[in-house]
Design a protein around this nucleic acid. Structure first.
Lengths: 166, 166
DNA sequence: CCCCAAGGTTCAGTGAACGAACTGAATAGG
DNA sequence: CCTATTCAGTTCGTTCACTGAACCTTGGGG
C-alpha cells in the first residue's frame, strides 16, 4: 500500500495545478504542517515523519527554492509565503477531523478569545479568520501512538510557529 | 521533471496525514477541482487533465470508495463530503494566485453579492464564508492555453458544481 | 587526536505513473 | 440486421520516483 506522485502538471493552466507543483508531492504538506507546529531541524523532521533522509533532503531543498522555507543556520523556518499556506493545512486538518476521524486529534485555540476555531475555520467568538501565530494547539484523545521526542514535545499545548524544544 | 507520491502515511497519527491519504495522491485534487467546475464524465476528466486513463480510472474508483464521489450512471458527482473540500481547493487556488501567478486566472464571485471573494476566502460584501454552490467562476487573463472542448466550456462563467455541457 | 553526532549524499531495488494498444458494451447509421 | 463509432475502461511494457541502508563530511568535545 504505497503510492507515488509525479511532480508537475505541465499541461494544466490553473492555479490549483501550480500550487500542487510546489506542495503536491508526497510528504511536502506534512513537512509544512510540522513547520507550523514548530519543527525546524532536519533530524526532528526525520524522526517525526519517518521519511527517507534522501526524500526529506530533496523536499526541504525544493521548499527553500520555492520560497516557502528559509534556511537559517541549521533551521528551516517558514517564510510569509509558507505561513500563508495555513488555510490549506488547517482546511485539510478540519476536513479530516469531521469526515475521517472518530475523535478529535488536535484543536486550535484562538489565544485572544480562548475559543477553539469552528469547522468553517473562523473563531466562534470574534467571527474572524485567525492567523497561525495567534493559535495554540491542544491535542485531543485521538492522538496517542508515537513516542519519539518530537511527538512528545508536540503533545504539550504550544503556540504555532514557536520552535519546539526536545 | 516528473514526481512520484506514495499513498499512505502509516506511522503518522495526524488528521492532515489522514486527509492526504485520501486526497494526497498525484492528480486526485485536480480531479476534485474539476468536479467542482462541473466535470462529471470519464472522458471529460481525461481530455481536460491529460491524465493516463489507467490512473484516472484508479483515482475515480478510490474517490468513490472514500465517499467523496458518487457514481450516478456514467457521471461522477461530488458528495457532501467531497463538497466540504472546497475550502482546501479554494485555499490552494488563492494561495497560488497570490504567490505563484503573475495575473489572476480565475475569480470566484459570490452570486448573491456580485463580489469576488477576498484573499482570506470571505466575501468582501457579506463578510462570510461562501459555499461553492453560491459561487460563479469567471476566468481572468492568465488563462489562455488549452483548446480541448472541456477547457472551452469552462471558459464561460458558470456556477460551481453545475454540470458543464460540451 | 579521536570519537561522536548532525546533516546530508549515493545507490540498488521496488513500486507507481505513463502511454499506447486492446476490450467490451452501448448507441447510431445505413 | 449489420457495421461503425463512441465511451469507459483494462492490460502491459517502460520509465521514473520513492525507499531504506550504507556511506560521507563537517564541527565540536574530551
Amino acid at each position: 500500500m504505497r503510492m507515488a506522485l509525479g511532480k508537475d502538471y505541465a499541461r494544466q493552466d490553473c492555479s490549483v495545478a501550480r500550487a500542487l507543483e510546489v506542495v503536491g508531492e508526497r510528504w511536502t504538506l506534512l513537512i509544512v504542517r510540522d513547520a507550523f507546529y514548530g519543527v525546524r531541524r532536519f533530524s526532528d523532521f526525520l524522526v517525526h515523519l519517518d521519511i527517507p533522509r534522501a526524500v526529506l533532503s530533496a523536499r526541504l531543498q525544493s521548499l527553500v527554492e520555492s520560497g516557502l522555507l528559509l534556511k537559517d543556520g541549521q533551521d528551516y523556518v517558514l517564510t510569509e509565503m509558507g505561513r500563508d499556506l495555513w488555510s490549506v493545512v488547517h482546511g485539510l486538518a478540519r476536513w479530516a477531523e469531521s469526515h475521517l476521524m472518530s475523535e478529535p486529534s488536535r484543536v486550535f485555540v484562538h489565544i485572544a478569545c480562548g475559543a477553539g476555531v469552528r469547522a468553517d475555520g473562523l473563531c466562534p467568538a470574534c467571527e474572524r479568520v485567525i492567523p497561525p501565530e495567534d493559535l495554540e494547539v491542544h491535542v485531543g484523545p485521538g492522538l496517542l501512538r508515537r513516542d519519539d521526542p518530537v511527538s512528545v514535545a508536540l503533545r504539550s499545548p504550544h503556540r504555532l510557529l514557536e520552535p519546539i524544544r526536545t
